[in-house]
Amino acid sequence: MSERQIELEVLRYRPEMDDKPFFQTYSVPCQEEWVVLDALNYVKDEMDRTLSYRWSCHMFVCGSCGMAINGEPKLACKAFLRDYQTKIRIEPLSNFPIERDLVIVQDDFIEKLESVKPYIIPKQEKPIDQGEYLQTPAQLKAYKQYSMCINCLLCYSACPQYALEEKFIGPAALALAHRYNMDSRDVGRSAREHVVASHDGIWACSFVGACSQVCPKDVDPAGAIQQVKFTSAVDYLTSFLPGGKR
């Protein structure tokens, strides 16, 4: 194991004492196999206890440690130091207000996530003693990829449309709406439609695809949104035919 000295330039902002955000540099003795999160933990444990950031699992499952590393939205636990030069710049995820240091305010996303009803809406509630809902492998495959989302918000940080249009429902929430729409146990598509197929829903997306590039779980939100655009466009046009759903 070899050791390497890394210069971490971390954006600091403590609203009660700092007028505006500023960069603080820490010189951290790092092991070669460390990730950026390990370096931050070293700072927190050994150098500066006042530094605030979110993290929990250290294994790309919890989605807490999203931050901009050298300007790119990344999970700090998935950003290996061996892929970086000696100097690494760490900032909170862009497109969100800063709560404190690297911690962002997530309220906007949480509200949008709730608005798309991200849970199974069954045709009929089934009592537990009637057993599980069964699904074929093909039915599982239809939505599994979109169910891998860990709400890390890297996609919102990368999305140029969300940066321009704050009301945009955004990649993760729309991909999760698609995840439930594609689930054979769910009949909630029309209940989600008034948000998903609205002006601020899928139609605000111009298919830049940055969300899918930065997604650490290969959810491909851009692909999900394209699929929803097609089904919603068909819905919209057929709604004018006799017998169509309005």
Binding site: H194, S232, A233, Y236
Partner: peptide, 10 residues
């Protein structure tokens, strides 16, 4: 929110 007519040009 109403469904968007953007479906047509799209």
């Amino acid at each position: 929110m109403a469904r968007s007519a953007k479906a047509v040009p799209w």
